[in-house]
Every structure is written in C-alpha cells, then in structure tokens.
C-alpha cells in the first residue's frame, strides 16, 4: 500500500492525546490492583492489632511513606523507560536515593542497639512471610499495570517490566503494611524491600515477553 494512504488512514483516528494520560492510566490501574490487595489484606490477614492506637497508625504511615515512594519511583521510571528518547536518570537517581537512604537508616538503627539484639530486631516475627506476602499481593497490582504498560513503547522491555514490578511491589507492600505490625526500620528496608525486589524481578521476566512492540 502507499504510504500516503496509510497516513490518511491513520489520521482518521484521534491524534495525540492530552498530556499525562499514560501516567494517569498506569496510576489508575495499578491503584485498582492495590485496592484489591488492601482489601484482601484486611479481610483475610486482618488489620494490624495496634491500628486503633496512635503509635500503630504512625508506624503504618511511616512504612507506607517509604513503600509508596518506591512505587512512585517505579511509576516515574516506567513512564520514562516506556517513552522512546526519554532519559531515565531522574527516576533512577530517586530510586538509588531511596535504597541508599533505607540502608543507611537500617545501619543506624542496628548500630544503636546492643549487638545481641540486632538479629532479633532485623528478623522481627514475620521475616519469612513478609516478602512472599508482598510478592503474592503484588500480583494483584502487577497484572493490570502490565496490561496498561503494553501501551508503552519501551526500548528495553525487561527494564520497563522491572519498573512496573517496582510500582506494583511498592503498592502491595503498602497494602501489606495494613496487616503487618513490625515497626523496625531495618525490617521494613530488608524484608519489605526483598518483597518489592521480588515483584520487580517478576515484572522484568514478564515485561521481557509482553512489553515488546
């Protein structure tokens, strides 16, 4: 067919959409998944027992702040990686800052308590369950986000998939925080971080297959 005819055909459809439509869609659909994860957490696992106390709410909010920041970095990164010609420097820097900041906070927290209590502090009561729960709940956000992400145009599909996984993992970690009563910073950084990382790795594996275009 002739290229002019192709152009005429394409121009029958609406042209460029308004700004930030892609971000909104990713946010909306991963948010729907996150709500489902939150609902599942509260209904099946049950809310953390200290949720009726200020300390409990404060602990939840603090953890949520960190995991939402990870999700935000994931959204930002996915948007950049999904846009030909865009640079991912900004979101990568944000991610590195979050990780380095978390590790520093972990080191400081562990350094301030007696050596004999460090292992107990780090392991908490649910170190083995936490990453698995976050990965499992993460699937609820990962699936819709990945479907929307198929509209992106990533030059590196696996990397974009990892960013989508980071978004989903950060959201599911936030949802899991509704249940998990662990308060240690080190626990958050290490075990929540591991759950988010696992979701990102899964996202990379899926993205390498489904985000090609």
């Amino acid at each position: 067919m002739k290229t002019e005819d192709l152009i005429a055909g394409l121009a029958m459809e609406p042209g460029f959409p308004g700004p930030r439509r892609m971000e909104r869609k990713l946010f909306l659909w991963s948010g729907v998944g996150a709500l489902a994860a939150a609902l599942l957490t509260v209904l099946v696992l049950g809310p953390r027992p200290d949720m009726d106390q200020i300390a409990g709410v404060a602990s939840f909010l603090g953890k949520a702040g960190y995991t939402l920041a990870l999700a935000g970095a994931g959204l930002w990164l996915a948007r950049r990686l999904g846009q030909p010609g865009a640079r991912a420097k900004g979101p990568l820097l944000a991610l590195v800052l979050l990780l380095v900041g978390g590790l520093i906070a972990t080191a400081v927290e562990l350094a301030m308590i007696p050596a004999g209590e460090r292992a107990a502090q780090l392991m908490g009561h649910s170190a083995m369950i936490c990453p698995l729960a976050i990965l499992g709940l993460g699937l609820l956000a990962l699936c819709p986000a990945m479907v929307v992400a198929r509209r992106l145009a990533p030059v590196r599909p696996a990397a974009a998939g990892a960013a989508i996984g980071l978004l989903a993992g950060g959201l599911s970690a936030t949802a899991y925080g509704l249940h998990c009563a662990e308060t240690a910073v080190s626990f958050l950084v290490v075990w929540y971080g591991l759950g988010v990382l696992a979701t990102a790795v899964l996202g990379a594996a899926i993205g390498a297959r489904v985000l090609r275009w």
Partner: peptide, 13 residues
Amino acid sequence: LIAIHTKRETYNP
C-alpha cells in the same frame, strides 16, 4: 508511522 500512531500516548508534549 504505525508505531508513532499506536504509541502516540507515550509522547510527552
């Protein structure tokens, strides 16, 4: 051209 069309959402104006 088709890719520009199908991926036009990813362009940030």
